[in-house]
Write a protein that binds this DNA or RNA. Sequence first.
DNA 1: GCTCAACAGGAGCTGTGACTCCGATTCTAG
DNA 2: CTAGAATCGGAGTCACAGCTCCTGTTGAGC
Lengths: 187, 187
Amino acid sequence: MTRSLRSDAQRNRQRILEAAEVVFALKGPSASTEEIAQKAGVGIGTVFRHFPTKEALLQAIIKGLAVRVAAETGNLARTGEPATAFFQFFTWVIGQAAEQRTVVDLLAEAGVEVIVAKPVDALRDAVAALLTAAQRAGAVRRDVGVPEVLALLIGLCQASLHAGWSPEVRDRTLAVVFDGLRPSPTA
Amino acid sequence: MTRSLRSDAQRNRQRILEAAEVVFALKGPSASTEEIAQKAGVGIGTVFRHFPTKEALLQAIIKGLAVRVAAETGNLARTGEPATAFFQFFTWVIGQAAEQRTVVDLLAEAGVEVIVAKPVDALRDAVAALLTAAQRAGAVRRDVGVPEVLALLIGLCQASLHAGWSPEVRDRTLAVVFDGLRPSPTA
DNA sequence: GCTCAACAGGAGCTGTGACTCCGATTCTAG
DNA sequence: CTAGAATCGGAGTCACAGCTCCTGTTGAGC
């Protein structure tokens, strides 16, 4: 087990996480470690002591994000109307992605079959709960599963990163997907 | 104007383009110029004489791809049934993207508002023709435009690059989007 | 306060990839 | 066939980012 860190080390670790979250959200995974260190007000060496590789840092951020998004999703599943909660979740995630590039990476991670981190699993479970509740309420067709939902989420989030993606286009595109997700009247 | 190139130069230029097309399709835009030169059987210097920057080379490939895709799209618009041609086009593009990463970049380029290259414009026109024909035939709802179609195409193509995207998931996801694109019975 | 282990910092190492430069090598006009 | 201009090739340059290492500093137990 790891003993608890010295107080200044804990403080720096927290600062690095916060800075990395902002920078990654803004510039994507290609942001340089130096920029993160500068934003956190620490040296590069300090960053690499807390996180052995840049990849580890990114994973830590994604993990934290997964926990928060899963919690939010769980809340929505518990308190909202099943029929509308699912669509609210969809809209919310895509809104997040437009301003937080990290969300896109998180979803990409979630879409991969072989999952490593438990928090991402939790997120998938939360999405599954939301989906099945909406299906039971008759708001979503029954022949779609979590993989399809994640594919649509990933796709729309990726699209939202591109230029020329105005709020109007976003709303109309979402409307198309939502109509496609509803039970078909011919079924 | 530029005089015609020496015969060996023309041959090399062609080889570079072919090699670059293969490599970019396989590894995306981050593929190294050296690898392209090696695949083409020429030195790096030769690559950079024909294309001043790597970006220029990528643009040239995308341009060529745009011409071919636009031609294919135009064919489909002329010979196919308006009601089905649009959906065939959609399916075809996404199938291409799964094996040719460059297609994704092409579409990303097409989605951007400020267009530089004419071939990309031509592609957008071809998509527009296909879309309006399908709408006139009553196969596609009238409140979607080219931006929305491109957004859906870009998104699904990006999603198709990720692991865990099996043919089954692709078909079901496409089915959802197609149902969403059809005229709603309540309209 | 003192001591020392834990930690911070950032100059530098290393690997990579875009791009340049110039001697060697072809193609082509006459 | 030959001159010479166009072209080729790839070693070398430059910039950048991940990562290491060693010196100086700071927190915590005594």
